[in-house]
């Protein structure tokens, strides 16, 4: 067991906005940009930046298509993203377990 799981946390995921994006996408096969924005109450710009960062890291697959002649951007976790998110959760849980509770 690693003595300091916090040091192993993926810094890319360990950011409030990106963690929120990965959390909601872990619970749903895919979500549109609008759904993500409404769920997480982020601005378009902020969300776009986080999505691009996650996409460049290979954690997110972004698909652009058309629905009723309107552009539709959908996001989904890639297998690498799922693994990274699961590992992040495992490390967090490990850290919580290792920390002694105040009596």
């Amino acid at each position: 067991m690693n003595p300091d799981p916090v040091r192993q946390l993926d810094r890319l995921i360990h950011e409030k906005g990106r963690l929120a994006i990965l959390s909601v996408l872990a619970a749903s096969p895919e979500l549109s940009f609008t759904e993500l924005r409404n769920l997480l109450e982020m601005t378009d710009g902020n969300l776009s930046v986080h999505i691009r960062t996650l996409q460049e890291a290979g954690y997110l697959a972004v698909t652009k298509s058309f629905r009723k002649r309107k552009p539709l951007t959908t996001c989904a976790l890639t297998p690498a993203g799922k693994i990274a998110f699961t590992q992040y959760l495992d490390l967090l849980e490990q850290f919580v377990r290792q920390t002694p509770r105040p009596s």
Binding site: L19, A20, V24, L25, S28, L31, L92, F95, V96
Partner: peptide
Amino acid sequence: AVEHLQVIRTLMERTAL
């Protein structure tokens, strides 16, 4: 860390269709 886990859990539950 506990708060992080709680936030993740809440978000996942809210999103799960």
